[in-house]
């Protein structure tokens, strides 16, 4: 190739390089301009699941030591306490003796739905009971249920002011009666179920002095919308 032709080709390559640089710079400028025009909307995907928390908020034996309807029951003592952040409670009564139903004592158990979703009682059970058969066979009870709304006002829309079980022998019925009175009742968020567990030692109990009984009552709750 003659020297003139070589020089011409060299010039042509220089031009191409220059144009390429210009194009790059131009696109760069366009990019800057384009970037100035866009905006960004960020959607933070934060899905929080509901909380499920049913808790015992109160456990008492309110009438122990107070006069009954037909005789002074001063000598009966009792009480209750909430344990384990409301997941457990202890109820007790001392010095019960045979009496008619009218002289009953009662435990009150407050169970609150602190969940974000409604709950219903799935099942309850009476477990690990022990002690005197004479006492078990003659300890009678009833369950009276009242529902309070989140403001502490009786929620009468579901059950009226209260729903009561019939009388039953404790060991045969306390768990089943617990379920029966709660059957179909939805405990909405913030609502509280007050179980009044009435009890009395039936007058037919001729034995059983200085005895005691122990039991564990378990309440299982579930979402209201699940079978």
């Amino acid at each position: 190739m003659p020297p003139a032709a070589i020089n011409e080709k060299r010039d042509t390559l220089k031009q191409i390089r220059f144009i390429a640089v210009i194009i790059i710079v131009a696109f760069g400028l366009i990019g800057v301009v384009y970037a100035a025009w866009v905006d960004q909307v960020v959607v933070a995907g934060n899905v929080r699941t509901a909380d499920f928390n049913v808790r015992i908020t109160g456990a008492t034996c309110p009438n122990a030591g107070k006069s009954g309807d037909n005789f002074d029951l001063t000598y009966i003592s009792g009480g209750g306490e909430v344990l384990e952040s409301g997941k457990r409670a202890r109820l007790w009564v001392d010095n019960i003796y045979p009496s008619p139903r009218v002289s009953h004592q009662n435990w009150q158990l407050y169970i609150k739905n602190e969940s974000d979703i409604p709950v219903v009682l799935d099942s309850s059970s009476l477990d690990a009971y022990s002690g005197s058969n004479e006492v078990w066979n003659y300890l009678w009870g009833e369950i009276h249920l009242r529902i309070y709304d989140e403001k502490g006002i009786t929620a009468a829309n579901q059950i009226g002011s209260t729903v009561n079980s019939g009388s039953f022998i404790f060991k045969d019925g306390i768990d089943l009666k617990s379920e029966a009175v709660m059957d179909g009742i939805i405990l909405y968020p913030g609502y509280t179920a007050r179980y009044s567990i009435l009890f009395w030692l039936h007058p037919d109990a001729t034995e059983g002095q200085n005895e005691k009984i122990d039991f564990t009552l378990t309440y299982n709750w579930k979402q209201w919308n699940m079978p």
Binding site: F52, N53, V54, R55, I56, A59, Y75, I76, G86, K87, R88, A89, R90, L91, W92, V93, D94, N95, I96, Y97, W107, L109, I111, S115, I117, V119, D122, S132, V135, L139, F199, L201, G208, Q209, N210, E211, K212, I213, D214, F215, T216, L217, T218, Y219, N220, W221, K222, Q223, M226
Partner: peptide, 19 residues
Amino acid sequence: YAAWTDTVVVDGRASTGNM
């Protein structure tokens, strides 16, 4: 599995008197 549950437990004791 999605059916959430919760459980509360009550321990009870009753003692009789004597005459």
